[in-house]
Design a protein around this nucleic acid. Sequence first.
DNA 1: TAATAAATGTCGTTT
DNA 2: AAACGACGTTTATTA
Lengths: 250, 250
Amino acid sequence: MKVKVDPSLKEAWDLVQGGLKRKEVIIIVGACEVEYRGRAYSELPEGMRILIIKEDSALILHRPRGFEPVNWQPSGSIIASEYKENMLLIRAFKRRPAEVMEVRFREVKLVASLKLIDKGEFLMYGSEEDIKRAIMIRPDLLERGLRILRDERKTDKGYVDLCAVDSEGRLVVIELKRGRADKDAVLQLLRYVNYYKRSGACKVRGVLVSPSISKGALRLLKEVGLEYKKISLKKCREVILAHSNSSLFK
Amino acid sequence: MKVKVDPSLKEAWDLVQGGLKRKEVIIIVGACEVEYRGRAYSELPEGMRILIIKEDSALILHRPRGFEPVNWQPSGSIIASEYKENMLLIRAFKRRPAEVMEVRFREVKLVASLKLIDKGEFLMYGSEEDIKRAIMIRPDLLERGLRILRDERKTDKGYVDLCAVDSEGRLVVIELKRGRADKDAVLQLLRYVNYYKRSGACKVRGVLVSPSISKGALRLLKEVGLEYKKISLKKCREVILAHSNSSLFK
DNA sequence: TAATAAATGTCGTTT
DNA sequence: AAACGACGTTTATTA
Protein backbone atom coordinates (compact mmCIF):
# COMPACT_ATOMS: atom_id res chain seq x y z
CA MET A 1 0.00 0.00 0.00
CA LYS A 2 1.25 3.46 -0.87
CA VAL A 3 -0.05 6.47 1.02
CA LYS A 4 0.90 10.13 0.98
CA VAL A 5 -0.42 12.88 3.19
CA ASP A 6 -0.36 16.43 1.83
CA PRO A 7 1.64 15.43 -1.24
CA SER A 8 2.60 17.79 -4.00
CA LEU A 9 0.44 17.39 -7.11
CA LYS A 10 3.44 15.81 -8.83
CA GLU A 11 3.84 13.26 -6.03
CA ALA A 12 0.13 12.50 -6.10
CA TRP A 13 0.25 12.05 -9.86
CA ASP A 14 3.17 9.61 -9.57
CA LEU A 15 1.25 7.57 -7.04
CA VAL A 16 -1.91 7.56 -9.17
CA GLN A 17 0.00 6.53 -12.30
CA GLY A 18 1.54 3.60 -10.45
CA GLY A 19 -1.80 2.57 -9.01
CA LEU A 20 -3.52 2.68 -12.39
CA LYS A 21 -0.73 0.61 -13.92
CA ARG A 22 -0.99 -2.04 -11.20
CA LYS A 23 -4.83 -1.91 -11.31
CA GLU A 24 -5.07 -1.06 -7.64
CA VAL A 25 -7.81 0.81 -5.84
CA ILE A 26 -6.96 4.50 -5.55
CA ILE A 27 -8.37 7.01 -3.10
CA ILE A 28 -7.79 10.73 -3.54
CA VAL A 29 -9.00 13.36 -1.09
CA GLY A 30 -8.58 16.94 -2.15
CA ALA A 31 -9.87 20.14 -3.71
CA CYS A 32 -11.14 19.62 -7.22
CA GLU A 33 -13.58 20.81 -9.86
CA VAL A 34 -15.56 18.37 -11.96
CA GLU A 35 -17.13 18.29 -15.38
CA TYR A 36 -19.34 15.64 -16.98
CA ARG A 37 -20.57 15.36 -20.55
CA GLY A 38 -22.65 12.52 -21.92
CA ARG A 39 -26.32 11.68 -21.48
CA ALA A 40 -26.48 15.02 -19.66
CA TYR A 41 -24.03 17.77 -18.73
CA SER A 42 -22.88 18.78 -15.27
CA GLU A 43 -20.46 21.20 -13.67
CA LEU A 44 -19.17 21.30 -10.13
CA PRO A 45 -16.92 24.18 -9.03
CA GLU A 46 -14.01 23.67 -6.67
CA GLY A 47 -14.50 21.99 -3.31
CA MET A 48 -13.07 19.21 -1.15
CA ARG A 49 -14.19 15.74 -2.20
CA ILE A 50 -13.28 12.08 -2.15
CA LEU A 51 -12.53 10.24 -5.38
CA ILE A 52 -12.35 6.45 -5.51
CA ILE A 53 -10.93 4.72 -8.55
CA LYS A 54 -11.59 1.00 -8.49
CA GLU A 55 -9.56 -1.79 -10.05
CA ASP A 56 -12.20 -2.29 -12.75
CA SER A 57 -11.99 1.42 -13.59
CA ALA A 58 -15.20 2.48 -11.92
CA LEU A 59 -14.98 6.06 -10.61
CA ILE A 60 -16.96 7.48 -7.73
CA LEU A 61 -16.78 11.05 -6.50
CA HIS A 62 -18.31 11.89 -3.13
CA ARG A 63 -19.11 15.19 -1.47
CA PRO A 64 -19.14 15.46 2.34
CA ARG A 65 -22.89 14.80 2.50
CA GLY A 66 -25.41 12.40 1.08
CA PHE A 67 -25.56 8.79 0.08
CA GLU A 68 -25.17 9.28 -3.64
CA PRO A 69 -21.99 10.18 -5.50
CA VAL A 70 -22.18 13.60 -7.14
CA ASN A 71 -20.36 12.33 -10.24
CA TRP A 72 -19.26 8.88 -11.36
CA GLN A 73 -18.31 6.62 -14.21
CA PRO A 74 -19.20 2.92 -14.22
CA SER A 75 -16.79 -0.03 -14.58
CA GLY A 76 -14.95 -0.40 -17.82
CA SER A 77 -14.16 3.24 -18.40
CA ILE A 78 -10.84 4.27 -19.86
CA ILE A 79 -8.94 6.28 -17.29
CA ALA A 80 -6.10 8.69 -17.87
CA SER A 81 -4.28 10.88 -15.39
CA GLU A 82 -2.26 13.93 -16.30
CA TYR A 83 -0.15 16.43 -14.42
CA LYS A 84 -0.04 19.88 -15.96
CA GLU A 85 -0.36 23.53 -15.11
CA ASN A 86 -0.47 22.87 -11.40
CA MET A 87 -3.36 20.48 -11.78
CA LEU A 88 -3.83 16.76 -11.40
CA LEU A 89 -6.32 15.66 -14.02
CA ILE A 90 -8.27 12.44 -13.81
CA ARG A 91 -10.29 11.69 -16.89
CA ALA A 92 -12.63 8.77 -17.54
CA PHE A 93 -14.11 8.04 -20.99
CA LYS A 94 -16.81 5.59 -21.83
CA ARG A 95 -18.55 4.60 -25.06
CA ARG A 96 -22.14 3.54 -25.56
CA PRO A 97 -23.31 5.88 -24.36
CA ALA A 98 -20.35 8.19 -24.97
CA GLU A 99 -19.50 9.91 -21.74
CA VAL A 100 -16.59 11.77 -20.20
CA MET A 101 -15.97 12.75 -16.62
CA GLU A 102 -13.04 14.95 -15.73
CA VAL A 103 -11.82 15.73 -12.23
CA ARG A 104 -9.28 18.51 -11.82
CA PHE A 105 -7.45 18.54 -8.50
CA ARG A 106 -5.84 21.80 -7.38
CA GLU A 107 -4.70 20.36 -4.11
CA VAL A 108 -4.42 16.84 -2.71
CA LYS A 109 -4.72 16.23 1.02
CA LEU A 110 -4.44 12.46 0.91
CA VAL A 111 -3.76 9.88 -1.76
CA ALA A 112 -3.60 6.12 -1.33
CA SER A 113 -3.22 3.21 -3.69
CA LEU A 114 -3.50 -0.41 -2.69
CA LYS A 115 -4.56 -3.88 -3.77
CA LEU A 116 -7.80 -4.74 -1.96
CA ILE A 117 -8.12 -8.47 -1.44
CA ASP A 118 -11.80 -9.28 -1.11
CA LYS A 119 -12.97 -12.83 -1.74
CA GLY A 120 -16.04 -12.74 0.50
CA GLU A 121 -19.25 -13.99 -1.05
CA PHE A 122 -22.10 -11.53 -0.65
CA LEU A 123 -25.35 -13.15 0.45
CA MET A 124 -28.69 -11.44 0.40
CA TYR A 125 -32.13 -12.62 1.47
CA GLY A 126 -35.44 -10.91 0.88
CA SER A 127 -35.34 -10.29 -2.84
CA GLU A 128 -38.29 -10.83 -5.13
CA GLU A 129 -36.56 -14.04 -6.21
CA ASP A 130 -36.81 -15.31 -2.62
CA ILE A 131 -40.57 -14.72 -2.54
CA LYS A 132 -40.85 -16.69 -5.76
CA ARG A 133 -38.78 -19.53 -4.33
CA ALA A 134 -40.93 -19.71 -1.20
CA ILE A 135 -44.17 -19.79 -3.18
CA MET A 136 -42.84 -22.52 -5.45
CA ILE A 137 -42.04 -24.59 -2.35
CA ARG A 138 -45.34 -23.87 -0.66
CA PRO A 139 -48.05 -22.59 -3.06
CA ASP A 140 -50.53 -22.71 -0.17
CA LEU A 141 -48.86 -19.51 1.08
CA LEU A 142 -51.17 -17.92 -1.47
CA GLU A 143 -54.17 -20.24 -1.42
CA ARG A 144 -55.11 -23.89 -1.06
CA GLY A 145 -55.14 -26.08 -4.12
CA LEU A 146 -52.83 -23.84 -6.12
CA ARG A 147 -50.48 -25.58 -8.54
CA ILE A 148 -47.48 -23.63 -9.83
CA LEU A 149 -46.61 -23.90 -13.52
CA ARG A 150 -42.83 -23.98 -13.95
CA ASP A 151 -41.11 -21.42 -16.10
CA GLU A 152 -44.17 -20.02 -17.78
CA ARG A 153 -42.45 -16.69 -18.14
CA LYS A 154 -39.98 -18.08 -20.66
CA THR A 155 -42.60 -19.18 -23.14
CA ASP A 156 -44.52 -15.92 -23.10
CA LYS A 157 -43.88 -12.47 -24.43
CA GLY A 158 -44.21 -10.73 -21.10
CA TYR A 159 -41.95 -11.51 -18.18
CA VAL A 160 -44.58 -12.93 -15.85
CA ASP A 161 -43.24 -13.62 -12.35
CA LEU A 162 -45.27 -16.79 -11.82
CA CYS A 163 -48.17 -18.69 -13.36
CA ALA A 164 -50.36 -21.21 -11.60
CA VAL A 165 -53.62 -23.13 -11.87
CA ASP A 166 -56.19 -22.80 -9.09
CA SER A 167 -58.48 -25.51 -7.68
CA GLU A 168 -61.12 -24.66 -10.28
CA GLY A 169 -58.74 -24.95 -13.18
CA ARG A 170 -58.36 -21.23 -13.82
CA LEU A 171 -55.02 -19.77 -14.87
CA VAL A 172 -53.58 -17.56 -12.13
CA VAL A 173 -51.09 -14.92 -13.24
CA ILE A 174 -48.97 -13.76 -10.30
CA GLU A 175 -47.00 -10.56 -9.95
CA LEU A 176 -44.55 -10.34 -7.02
CA LYS A 177 -43.19 -7.24 -5.31
CA ARG A 178 -40.68 -7.35 -2.46
CA GLY A 179 -41.75 -3.96 -1.13
CA ARG A 180 -44.86 -1.84 -1.15
CA ALA A 181 -46.71 -2.41 -4.42
CA ASP A 182 -47.68 0.69 -6.40
CA LYS A 183 -49.83 1.49 -9.43
CA ASP A 184 -47.06 0.45 -11.78
CA ALA A 185 -47.15 -3.04 -10.30
CA VAL A 186 -50.90 -3.22 -10.93
CA LEU A 187 -50.51 -2.08 -14.52
CA GLN A 188 -47.73 -4.57 -15.06
CA LEU A 189 -49.96 -7.39 -13.84
CA LEU A 190 -52.87 -6.09 -15.90
CA ARG A 191 -50.79 -6.25 -19.07
CA TYR A 192 -49.94 -9.89 -18.50
CA VAL A 193 -53.49 -10.85 -17.56
CA ASN A 194 -54.85 -9.15 -20.68
CA TYR A 195 -52.27 -10.97 -22.76
CA TYR A 196 -53.45 -14.34 -21.47
CA LYS A 197 -57.10 -13.39 -21.77
CA ARG A 198 -56.60 -12.46 -25.41
CA SER A 199 -54.47 -15.43 -26.34
CA GLY A 200 -55.95 -18.23 -24.24
CA ALA A 201 -59.31 -19.88 -23.98
CA CYS A 202 -59.43 -20.60 -20.24
CA LYS A 203 -60.42 -18.23 -17.48
CA VAL A 204 -57.69 -16.00 -16.11
CA ARG A 205 -57.16 -14.48 -12.67
CA GLY A 206 -54.47 -11.96 -11.73
CA VAL A 207 -52.99 -11.81 -8.24
CA LEU A 208 -50.59 -9.19 -6.94
CA VAL A 209 -48.45 -10.54 -4.07
CA SER A 210 -46.44 -8.25 -1.78
CA PRO A 211 -45.90 -7.31 1.88
CA SER A 212 -48.00 -4.17 1.41
CA ILE A 213 -49.79 -2.08 -1.20
CA SER A 214 -50.53 1.62 -1.62
CA LYS A 215 -54.12 2.78 -1.33
CA GLY A 216 -54.28 4.04 -4.89
CA ALA A 217 -52.83 0.81 -6.22
CA LEU A 218 -55.39 -1.27 -4.30
CA ARG A 219 -58.25 0.86 -5.65
CA LEU A 220 -56.96 0.53 -9.20
CA LEU A 221 -56.45 -3.21 -8.70
CA LYS A 222 -60.08 -3.72 -7.71
CA GLU A 223 -61.36 -1.45 -10.48
CA VAL A 224 -59.76 -3.65 -13.11
CA GLY A 225 -60.83 -6.90 -11.45
CA LEU A 226 -57.52 -8.14 -10.07
CA GLU A 227 -56.77 -9.61 -6.64
CA TYR A 228 -54.35 -8.85 -3.83
CA LYS A 229 -52.58 -11.26 -1.49
CA LYS A 230 -50.37 -10.06 1.34
CA ILE A 231 -47.20 -11.99 2.09
CA SER A 232 -44.49 -11.63 4.73
CA LEU A 233 -40.80 -11.67 3.78
CA LYS A 234 -40.02 -13.29 7.10
CA LYS A 235 -42.43 -16.14 6.37
CA CYS A 236 -40.82 -16.64 2.95
CA ARG A 237 -37.40 -16.84 4.57
CA GLU A 238 -38.64 -19.45 7.06
CA VAL A 239 -40.12 -21.55 4.28
CA ILE A 240 -36.88 -21.47 2.30
CA LEU A 241 -34.75 -22.34 5.34
CA ALA A 242 -37.07 -25.18 6.39
CA HIS A 243 -36.98 -26.54 2.87
CA SER A 244 -33.20 -26.41 2.50
CA ASN A 245 -32.86 -28.11 5.90
CA SER A 246 -35.28 -30.88 4.96
CA SER A 247 -33.46 -31.31 1.66
CA LEU A 248 -30.35 -32.30 3.62
CA PHE A 249 -32.13 -35.43 4.79
CA LYS A 250 -33.16 -36.67 1.38
CA MET B 1 -6.92 16.21 9.15
CA LYS B 2 -5.96 13.09 11.08
CA VAL B 3 -4.53 10.11 9.23
CA LYS B 4 -3.08 6.83 10.44
CA VAL B 5 -1.48 4.13 8.34
CA ASP B 6 -1.57 0.56 9.70
CA PRO B 7 -2.96 1.67 13.04
CA SER B 8 -3.87 -0.69 15.84
CA LEU B 9 -7.62 -1.22 16.14
CA LYS B 10 -7.55 0.84 19.32
CA GLU B 11 -5.84 3.74 17.54
CA ALA B 12 -8.29 3.51 14.66
CA TRP B 13 -11.17 3.51 17.11
CA ASP B 14 -9.85 6.64 18.83
CA LEU B 15 -9.60 8.41 15.50
CA VAL B 16 -13.11 7.34 14.49
CA GLN B 17 -14.59 8.44 17.81
CA GLY B 18 -13.00 11.87 17.44
CA GLY B 19 -14.20 12.19 13.84
CA LEU B 20 -17.76 11.22 14.75
CA LYS B 21 -17.79 13.74 17.59
CA ARG B 22 -16.54 16.53 15.32
CA LYS B 23 -18.88 15.43 12.50
CA GLU B 24 -16.05 14.99 10.08
CA VAL B 25 -15.85 12.72 7.06
CA ILE B 26 -14.17 9.43 7.98
CA ILE B 27 -12.52 6.97 5.63
CA ILE B 28 -11.55 3.50 6.80
CA VAL B 29 -9.74 0.96 4.64
CA GLY B 30 -9.37 -2.51 6.07
CA ALA B 31 -10.51 -6.09 6.50
CA CYS B 32 -14.08 -6.34 7.71
CA GLU B 33 -17.22 -8.41 7.72
CA VAL B 34 -20.64 -6.84 7.27
CA GLU B 35 -24.20 -7.55 8.26
CA TYR B 36 -27.37 -5.75 7.28
CA ARG B 37 -30.90 -6.21 8.57
CA GLY B 38 -33.91 -4.19 7.53
CA ARG B 39 -35.98 -4.21 4.36
CA ALA B 40 -33.81 -7.19 3.45
CA TYR B 41 -30.98 -9.15 5.06
CA SER B 42 -27.40 -9.46 3.89
CA GLU B 43 -24.14 -10.98 5.00
CA LEU B 44 -20.65 -10.35 3.72
CA PRO B 45 -17.72 -12.40 5.07
CA GLU B 46 -14.33 -10.89 5.69
CA GLY B 47 -12.50 -9.00 2.97
CA MET B 48 -10.73 -5.68 2.32
CA ARG B 49 -13.08 -2.77 1.72
CA ILE B 50 -13.43 0.98 1.92
CA LEU B 51 -15.91 2.54 4.33
CA ILE B 52 -16.88 6.19 4.08
CA ILE B 53 -18.78 7.84 6.90
CA LYS B 54 -20.08 11.24 5.91
CA GLU B 55 -20.76 14.26 8.10
CA ASP B 56 -24.52 13.72 7.75
CA SER B 57 -24.07 10.12 8.91
CA ALA B 58 -24.46 8.48 5.52
CA LEU B 59 -22.42 5.26 5.31
CA ILE B 60 -21.06 3.75 2.13
CA LEU B 61 -19.09 0.53 1.94
CA HIS B 62 -17.24 -0.26 -1.29
CA ARG B 63 -15.61 -3.42 -2.54
CA PRO B 64 -12.66 -3.24 -5.00
CA ARG B 65 -14.96 -3.55 -8.02
CA GLY B 66 -18.15 -2.07 -9.32
CA PHE B 67 -19.92 1.24 -9.24
CA GLU B 68 -22.38 0.43 -6.50
CA PRO B 69 -21.66 0.14 -2.79
CA VAL B 70 -22.14 -3.38 -1.44
CA ASN B 71 -23.72 -2.09 1.77
CA TRP B 72 -24.82 1.34 2.89
CA GLN B 73 -27.00 3.40 5.11
CA PRO B 74 -28.47 6.72 3.97
CA SER B 75 -28.10 10.11 5.68
CA GLY B 76 -29.55 10.56 9.11
CA SER B 77 -28.55 7.25 10.57
CA ILE B 78 -27.39 6.97 14.16
CA ILE B 79 -23.79 5.83 14.19
CA ALA B 80 -21.92 4.18 17.03
CA SER B 81 -18.38 2.83 17.08
CA GLU B 82 -17.09 0.31 19.58
CA TYR B 83 -13.78 -1.33 20.27
CA LYS B 84 -14.00 -4.80 21.76
CA GLU B 85 -12.64 -8.29 21.41
CA ASN B 86 -10.05 -7.25 18.88
CA MET B 87 -12.66 -5.72 16.64
CA LEU B 88 -13.58 -2.23 15.60
CA LEU B 89 -17.36 -2.11 15.25
CA ILE B 90 -19.19 0.50 13.24
CA ARG B 91 -22.91 0.34 13.59
CA ALA B 92 -25.56 2.45 11.88
CA PHE B 93 -29.23 2.39 12.90
CA LYS B 94 -32.10 3.95 11.10
CA ARG B 95 -35.84 4.06 11.78
CA ARG B 96 -38.64 4.11 9.23
CA PRO B 97 -37.84 1.74 7.83
CA ALA B 98 -35.97 0.18 10.77
CA GLU B 99 -32.56 -0.89 9.52
CA VAL B 100 -29.18 -1.74 10.97
CA MET B 101 -25.84 -2.10 9.26
CA GLU B 102 -22.84 -3.36 11.18
CA VAL B 103 -19.26 -3.37 9.94
CA ARG B 104 -16.72 -5.35 11.95
CA PHE B 105 -13.10 -4.50 11.20
CA ARG B 106 -10.46 -7.09 12.12
CA GLU B 107 -7.67 -5.00 10.70
CA VAL B 108 -7.34 -1.41 9.57
CA LYS B 109 -4.84 -0.43 6.88
CA LEU B 110 -5.71 3.24 6.71
CA VAL B 111 -7.99 5.55 8.61
CA ALA B 112 -8.54 9.26 8.01
CA SER B 113 -10.86 11.85 9.45
CA LEU B 114 -11.19 15.38 8.16
CA LYS B 115 -13.52 18.31 7.63
CA LEU B 116 -14.31 18.51 3.92
CA ILE B 117 -15.07 22.08 2.90
CA ASP B 118 -17.24 21.95 -0.20
CA LYS B 119 -19.33 24.98 -1.12
CA GLY B 120 -19.44 24.38 -4.88
CA GLU B 121 -22.88 24.56 -6.47
CA PHE B 122 -23.67 21.52 -8.59
CA LEU B 123 -25.18 22.41 -11.94
CA MET B 124 -26.81 19.93 -14.26
CA TYR B 125 -28.32 20.40 -17.69
CA GLY B 126 -30.33 17.91 -19.68
CA SER B 127 -32.92 16.86 -17.13
CA GLU B 128 -36.58 16.37 -17.93
CA GLU B 129 -37.17 19.75 -16.31
CA ASP B 130 -34.91 21.34 -18.95
CA ILE B 131 -36.98 19.83 -21.77
CA LYS B 132 -40.08 21.28 -20.14
CA ARG B 133 -38.48 24.69 -19.82
CA ALA B 134 -37.44 24.69 -23.48
CA ILE B 135 -40.92 23.74 -24.68
CA MET B 136 -42.51 26.40 -22.52
CA ILE B 137 -40.22 28.97 -24.13
CA ARG B 138 -40.73 27.66 -27.65
CA PRO B 139 -43.85 25.46 -28.01
CA ASP B 140 -43.18 25.29 -31.76
CA LEU B 141 -40.42 22.79 -30.92
CA LEU B 142 -43.34 20.37 -30.85
CA GLU B 143 -45.69 21.88 -33.45
CA ARG B 144 -46.92 25.17 -34.81
CA GLY B 145 -49.81 26.89 -33.12
CA LEU B 146 -49.39 25.08 -29.83
CA ARG B 147 -50.26 27.06 -26.71
CA ILE B 148 -48.93 25.78 -23.37
CA LEU B 149 -51.24 25.82 -20.35
CA ARG B 150 -49.28 26.81 -17.25
CA ASP B 151 -49.07 24.47 -14.31
CA GLU B 152 -51.89 22.19 -15.30
CA ARG B 153 -50.35 19.43 -13.28
CA LYS B 154 -51.23 21.10 -10.00
CA THR B 155 -54.97 21.15 -10.61
CA ASP B 156 -55.24 17.55 -11.70
CA LYS B 157 -55.02 14.24 -9.98
CA GLY B 158 -52.26 12.88 -12.16
CA TYR B 159 -48.89 14.60 -12.42
CA VAL B 160 -49.03 15.51 -16.09
CA ASP B 161 -45.75 16.93 -17.37
CA LEU B 162 -47.36 19.53 -19.64
CA CYS B 163 -50.74 20.41 -21.05
CA ALA B 164 -51.37 22.50 -24.15
CA VAL B 165 -54.04 23.49 -26.67
CA ASP B 166 -53.39 22.88 -30.36
CA SER B 167 -54.36 25.06 -33.33
CA GLU B 168 -57.72 23.30 -33.56
CA GLY B 169 -58.56 23.81 -29.92
CA ARG B 170 -57.87 20.24 -28.80
CA LEU B 171 -56.28 19.55 -25.43
CA VAL B 172 -52.77 18.12 -25.83
CA VAL B 173 -51.46 16.07 -22.92
CA ILE B 174 -47.65 15.86 -23.06
CA GLU B 175 -45.39 13.32 -21.39
CA LEU B 176 -41.66 14.09 -21.38
CA LYS B 177 -38.76 11.65 -21.08
CA ARG B 178 -35.11 12.74 -21.00
CA GLY B 179 -33.85 9.38 -22.27
CA ARG B 180 -35.20 6.55 -24.38
CA ALA B 181 -38.94 6.23 -23.77
CA ASP B 182 -40.23 2.77 -22.86
CA LYS B 183 -43.60 1.08 -22.39
CA ASP B 184 -43.95 2.54 -18.93
CA ALA B 185 -43.80 6.03 -20.40
CA VAL B 186 -46.58 5.15 -22.87
CA LEU B 187 -48.78 3.71 -20.12
CA GLN B 188 -48.17 6.76 -17.97
CA LEU B 189 -49.29 9.04 -20.79
CA LEU B 190 -52.27 6.80 -21.51
CA ARG B 191 -53.46 7.08 -17.92
CA TYR B 192 -53.45 10.88 -18.08
CA VAL B 193 -55.11 11.02 -21.49
CA ASN B 194 -57.86 8.65 -20.33
CA TYR B 195 -58.36 10.79 -17.25
CA TYR B 196 -58.96 13.88 -19.37
CA LYS B 197 -61.13 12.01 -21.84
CA ARG B 198 -63.34 10.80 -19.01
CA SER B 199 -63.52 14.08 -17.14
CA GLY B 200 -63.52 16.65 -19.93
CA ALA B 201 -65.78 17.43 -22.85
CA CYS B 202 -63.23 18.56 -25.44
CA LYS B 203 -61.11 16.38 -27.69
CA VAL B 204 -57.86 15.11 -26.22
CA ARG B 205 -54.54 14.21 -27.85
CA GLY B 206 -51.60 12.57 -26.10
CA VAL B 207 -48.02 13.22 -27.19
CA LEU B 208 -44.91 11.48 -25.89
CA VAL B 209 -41.80 13.64 -26.26
CA SER B 210 -38.27 12.23 -25.93
CA PRO B 211 -34.93 11.92 -27.74
CA SER B 212 -35.74 8.29 -28.67
CA ILE B 213 -38.25 5.52 -28.10
CA SER B 214 -38.06 1.72 -27.95
CA LYS B 215 -39.71 -0.29 -30.72
CA GLY B 216 -42.19 -1.96 -28.38
CA ALA B 217 -43.13 1.35 -26.83
CA LEU B 218 -43.75 2.93 -30.25
CA ARG B 219 -45.95 0.01 -31.31
CA LEU B 220 -47.97 0.24 -28.09
CA LEU B 221 -48.23 4.02 -28.49
CA LYS B 222 -49.79 3.72 -31.94
CA GLU B 223 -52.07 0.88 -30.86
CA VAL B 224 -53.69 3.10 -28.24
CA GLY B 225 -53.88 6.13 -30.50
CA LEU B 226 -51.17 8.31 -29.03
CA GLU B 227 -48.48 10.34 -30.83
CA TYR B 228 -44.72 10.57 -30.68
CA LYS B 229 -42.50 13.61 -31.11
CA LYS B 230 -38.73 13.36 -31.10
CA ILE B 231 -36.76 16.12 -29.43
CA SER B 232 -33.04 16.77 -29.02
CA LEU B 233 -31.56 17.61 -25.63
CA LYS B 234 -28.97 19.78 -27.34
CA LYS B 235 -31.68 21.82 -29.03
CA CYS B 236 -33.44 22.29 -25.69
CA ARG B 237 -30.23 23.51 -24.14
CA GLU B 238 -29.73 26.02 -26.97
CA VAL B 239 -33.25 27.34 -26.57
CA ILE B 240 -32.80 27.83 -22.84
CA LEU B 241 -29.43 29.55 -23.27
CA ALA B 242 -30.74 31.83 -26.02
CA HIS B 243 -33.68 32.74 -23.85
CA SER B 244 -31.65 33.50 -20.73
CA ASN B 245 -29.30 35.64 -22.83
CA SER B 246 -32.14 37.59 -24.38
CA SER B 247 -33.65 38.03 -20.92
CA LEU B 248 -30.56 39.98 -19.91
CA PHE B 249 -31.51 42.75 -22.34
CA LYS B 250 -35.00 43.26 -21.06
C1' DT C 1 -27.38 -5.05 -28.87
C1' DA C 2 -32.04 -3.81 -27.40
C1' DA C 3 -35.65 -4.49 -24.16
C1' DT C 4 -37.49 -5.45 -19.94
C1' DA C 5 -37.91 -5.44 -14.92
C1' DA C 6 -35.67 -5.38 -10.01
C1' DA C 7 -33.48 -2.58 -6.39
C1' DT C 8 -32.15 -2.45 1.04
C1' DG C 9 -32.94 1.47 -5.23
C1' DT C 10 -32.36 7.10 -3.50
C1' DC C 11 -34.16 11.63 -3.80
C1' DG C 12 -37.28 15.37 -4.18
C1' DT C 13 -42.07 17.14 -4.16
C1' DT C 14 -46.70 17.27 -3.08
C1' DT C 15 -50.72 15.85 -0.50
C1' DA D 1 -46.29 9.98 6.75
C1' DA D 2 -47.71 8.28 2.23
C1' DA D 3 -47.71 8.57 -2.69
C1' DC D 4 -45.83 9.46 -6.90
C1' DG D 5 -42.34 10.08 -10.42
C1' DA D 6 -37.40 11.29 -11.98
C1' DC D 7 -32.71 9.50 -12.18
C1' DG D 8 -26.40 10.63 -16.21
C1' DT D 9 -30.57 5.81 -12.23
C1' DT D 10 -27.35 0.82 -12.23
C1' DT D 11 -27.59 -3.98 -12.74
C1' DA D 12 -29.02 -8.38 -14.30
C1' DT D 13 -31.57 -11.29 -17.56
C1' DT D 14 -33.38 -12.50 -21.88
C1' DA D 15 -34.56 -12.41 -26.80
